[in-house]
């Protein structure tokens, strides 16, 4: 009896040692790979002459210092600058809000057709899903640049780009939510003679709408960032103002815009977390 126990302990110990060895090996390989990537990255970058690490580290604080000293030198006028760029900020936010709203509405309808538990026709489901995949796989920036080229500068190309991407991104999440919802209410409605739309309206939507809205709010937050970025390529708003000021090196203005953006993004972050917690009761997405 005792011998077998000893034996099995030995066996386990041996296994443990073997595992520890494999693990150590993996760790060494992993660290080696990381070190290799970092050194080769640094060497590669120096070779490309695309900015040197050591020179860059020396100048690391130059720009932030310039920004703060510029804003300091502007004194009280700096707050006036903040006021000047606020309307631009609202244009950017409004662009994001409107495109998110349009994308949300389209995504709700498309997601119903991409859910196997609501649509029995396989062709419709896979066609809708592929459409959503295509819409999602192109980043807003790519669609926006193409549309800006075709339609000229303005907010409209950016609006369409964010809209299309939002439909793709939200549509997939929505259809997953619909597919995971409880089908019992739907069956109950069906047994009472409810039609397809009535089953969706009273059986599915009440279950998934809170989740839909929380996804939508998260998307709004992402889209505010996206519409700022699209401003850089000619969609107007605060992104364009930031780009202009950076190319002119107007430090106080850059500082004002950055401050506005940081405040907006942080506020949105907190707001969306709060609203989402209210909506879905703290369920982690």
């Amino acid at each position: 009896m005792t011998t077998t126990t000893e034996n099995s302990v030995d066996v386990y110990l041996e296994r443990l040692h073997a595992q520890a060895k494999t693990r150590a090996l993996y760790t060494v390989i992993f660290i080696g790979a990381i070190v290799f990537v970092i050194t080769s990255g640094v060497i590669f970058s120096e070779e490309q002459n695309a900015g040197s690490l050591s020179r860059g580290l020396d100048q690391f604080w130059d720009f932030p210092t310039d920004l703060f000293s510029g804003a300091w030198a502007a004194g009280w006028d700096w707050f006036g600058l903040v006021g000047i760029y606020t309307p631009e900020l609202f244009r950017t936010i409004n662009l994001a809000l409107f495109s998110t709203a349009l994308g949300f509405i389209c995504a709700v309808f498309l997601s119903l057709f991409a859910s196997t538990n609501l649509i029995s026709n396989g062709w419709v489901v896979s066609l809708t899903r592929r459409t959503l995949d295509v819409l999602r796989s192109f980043p807003e920036l790519v669609i926006a640049i193409a549309l800006l080229f075709l339609m000229g500068k303005g907010e409209l190309p950016a609006l369409i780009a964010i809209w299309l991407h939002t439909v793709g991104a939200l549509g997939k999440l929505f259809s997953e939510a619909v597919e995971n919802c409880d089908m019992k209410p739907v069956e109950g409605l069906q047994s009472a003679g409810a039609g397809w739309w009535q089953r969706v309206r009273f059986g599915v939507l009440p279950q998934v709408l809170p989740l839909f809205f929380s996804y939508g709010i998260l998307r709004l937050e992402i889209n505010v960032r996206a519409s700022t970025i699209l401003g850089f390529v000619g969609a107007g708003g605060i992104g364009e103002a930031l780009k202009t000021n950076i190319s002119w090196s107007y430090e106080p203005d850059i500082m004002a815009i950055m401050a506005l953006l940081v405040i907006t993004i942080t506020t949105l972050d907190y707001l969306s977390t709060y609203v989402r917690n209210k909506l879905i009761g703290g369920i982690q997405l």
Binding site: G41, F44, A50, G51, Q59, I246, M258, L261, V262, I265
Partner: peptide, 18 residues
């Protein structure tokens, strides 16, 4: 501070690149 803004800040120090 958005990734974009960070990249604009670092762009001055390191130039376009890795």
């Amino acid at each position: 501070i958005d990734m974009l803004i960070w990249s604009l800040i670092f762009l001055r120090a390191f130039g376009p690149g890795l």
